[in-house]
Amino acid sequence: MTHSIHPIISIQGLNKVFKVGKENVQVLIDINLDILPGEFVVILGPSGCGKSTLLNTIIGLETPSSGFVKIHGHNIYNLNEDVKTAFRQKNFGVVHQQSNWIKSLNVIDNIAFPLNAIGYRHKRSVIKAKNSLSMFAMEGYSKHSLSELSGGQQTKVAVCRALITNPPIIMADEPTGNLDTASAVGVMNQFEILNREYRNTIVMITHNPIYTEYATKVVNMMDGRISNIEVKNLIYGLNDKHRRHHVVGGKAS
């Protein structure tokens, strides 16, 4: 890459050590990675290779043992928890494999929750939430309880919730892990649209190589290290906002 663009996420010399009993387990070893605005990064690796820890460290939930992560040039680990929370909320939309919900709230209120968290009027946040639910043609489920929804539907709702605050970066941890193929395609297509049309930076963790087809950059991880970084496609619209880009390869199916 020869672009003079500043990375939106810059990881340098990152190590993460967990203490398990008396033993130290090094989960992340010397991670160096730059992610540019508009990239679709797939972090690929078998389970237990430290992918999820890397994601949690990037969004500031875990603190590095050494090295640092900068978002837009900001090192967030020295900030207090509330400032970190606000920073995370402003920059990241997060989708986890296992969806977590506020059980007393229905689908629409769960999607609207991040807006309520930053002080939106409930009426206004619900209108936005309904719009976002229409992205998956799921408007009919707004009053449902989350436990009434299938795994695929729950992931779609989780994506809606992650997008409701219009964050520039979407972090997805095995979003398709629990889904049937058709649902997985639906979610991946949505990510593609977000990346191509809305210029969201997407960082997706998976153990399934099939999703590398969506990526502009594939990061292979093994035993806590980055084994290699593979630049696949051009970042969409980087040189010409109006240039339609051809996706290399087919879609996951």
Binding site: T85, R88, N100, T165
Partner: peptide, 16 residues
């Protein structure tokens, strides 16, 4: 416990 953790991830400050 999980729900409170989730609220923090979703941007709810401690005071709230």
């Amino acid at each position: 416990t999980r729900e409170v953790g989730l609220m923090k991830i979703l941007g709810v400050k401690k005071i709230y």
